[in-house]
Design a protein around this nucleic acid. Sequence first.
DNA 1: TTGACACGCAAGGCGGTACTTGCCTATCTT
DNA 2: AAGATAGGCAAGTACCGCCTTGCGTGTCAA
Lengths: 98, 98
Amino acid sequence: MGDVFKALADPTRRAILDELIERDDQTLFELCSRLAAKHRVASSRQAVSQHIDVLVGAGLVKTRREGRYKFHHFDPQPLEQIGERWRQRRPEDPCRSR
Amino acid sequence: MGDVFKALADPTRRAILDELIERDDQTLFELCSRLAAKHRVASSRQAVSQHIDVLVGAGLVKTRREGRYKFHHFDPQPLEQIGERWRQRRPEDPCRSR
DNA sequence: TTGACACGCAAGGCGGTACTTGCCTATCTT
DNA sequence: AAGATAGGCAAGTACCGCCTTGCGTGTCAA
């Protein structure tokens, strides 16, 4: 549960999710080159790989093996759970008054 | 923007928000004693104070001075913004297939 | 089979974060 | 005024997270 927030706390990992939203099922090398080109993220392959491990640990990314390729897929399900948890206080809250 | 995720990444800070949701406008000492009692968080006053600084920096907590007391109020607005940003990929996504 | 390609593993460095410690200021009570 | 209460500030410490470096494994093409 807290793993999701920790995963989203890093800007590189958020960029990875943005990239997977734009184009699903990318490999590690695809992600690296696209992150460098479009998101101005200059991270090595190993760095990106470790970020992906964190995202997988948080349930935000699912992987699929095909030969020597490993494709990555964004799974938004954990985000919906945390969205519900922290949305309780909204309706009865017009107390912007100081 | 990323400050919100960094703020939520820490379990003690999430407990502080939980406490403020249960009972709004608490002082620092109130939060400390209640965190220790109900949320099993054993943090010193200074530790909690620094956590609050982070939450204020993320816009999740607003403060209000009254004499020697300082009250803390949970503001869920930043959470709604992040909720909208990451909810794009959901409708057209029945691809649980592997 | 050999080399290239995609990826994995593990140790180490380095900066940031959480917490403590000590002392200080401001406000209220008596 | 003096003590008590609520909180602030800053330096020091220990730990965690991000990244690098180097090498190893599995897969595919020529």
